[in-house]
């Protein structure tokens, strides 16, 4: 076990970097972080579009969300891998491909979380805001979202944790994220698969558990003031 770690820990953490491209746990982290940062605003936009009073916006976005939700992520990855170059005429990197797939996939799921969070507030809050003369967007920004995002937090964290785990599917298109690297190590060592995959499992656990603890800590800090909606 000791030998294994001593020999391979750098490879596990960063892949072939700095002699080759960045890989390993660092790449998994980078991919997860970027996917979260890009998927959240996309999910917010799609979710609000699903609730929009304008049909021209609501229908195509609903169609997109339903399509993505009825599709395994692996297939979205294939679409991105084979479809994107055909569409754009430009061969994107494995990293870029995986990022696009994750952002689109998680964006659709986050959209549903946003929609549920907003609808869970009940009609009264939107009505009260509109009755004051605020526009739909002003009402969303100042009245609806500050409350809805708070209610959504547990579901958002859930989805973020899923995103971290979903980066492992990059394996299938040869992206050298941490699962790919672990498999490489296993191939080289050959005799210690249990240890190798134990380390891989522990790494994912620490990332995911850490993120959810962080999120709840932040929520606790934000909840000093009372802000639960009165039943409408």
């Amino acid at each position: 076990m000791r030998d294994l770690i001593d020999t391979y820990w750098v490879y596990f953490l960063v892949g072939q970097y700095p002699k080759g491209p960045l890989g390993g746990l660092a790449l998994t982290l980078l991919l997860s972080a970027l996917a979260l940062l890009l998927a959240l605003p996309l999910g917010l936009a799609l979710g609000l579009a699903r609730l929009s009073p304008w049909r021209a916006l609501r229908w195509p976005v609903s169609a997109l969300v339903f399509t993505v939700r009825a599709t395994p992520l692996l297939m979205v990855v294939f679409w991105a891998y084979f479809g994107l170059p055909a569409l754009t005429g430009y061969k994107s990197s494995q990293f870029g491909t995986m990022l696009v797939a994750l952002v689109v996939f998680d964006g659709a799921y986050l959209a549903e979380i946003v929609r549920a969070g907003v609808q869970g507030l009940g009609r009264g809050q939107m009505e009260a805001a509109r009755a004051l003369g605020l526009s739909h967007l002003q009402a969303l920004r100042h009245v609806i979202l500050p409350q809805a995002l708070r209610h959504m937090l547990p579901s958002l964290v859930n989805q973020f944790v899923s995103t971290i785990k979903e980066t492992s599917l990059g394996y299938i298109i040869g992206l050298s994220e941490v699962s790919f690297i672990a498999t490489q190590i296993n191939t080289q060592v050959f005799t210690k698969p249990a240890q190798v995959y134990l380390w891989l499992g522990v790494s994912y656990f620490l990332l995911c558990f850490g993120l959810s603890r962080l999120a709840y800590w932040m929520q606790g800090r934000g909840e000093r003031r009372p802000a639960t909606a009165s039943p409408a």
Binding site: E127, A128, Q147, A229
Partner: peptide
């Protein structure tokens, strides 16, 4: 919006903004 901004409306359920 302009119309509503000139009319005060009070709801049965108050609908204050809890945040």
């Amino acid at each position: 919006n302009e119309l509503r901004s000139r009319i005060g409306f009070v709801f049965q359920q108050f609908n204050l903004f809890p945040h």
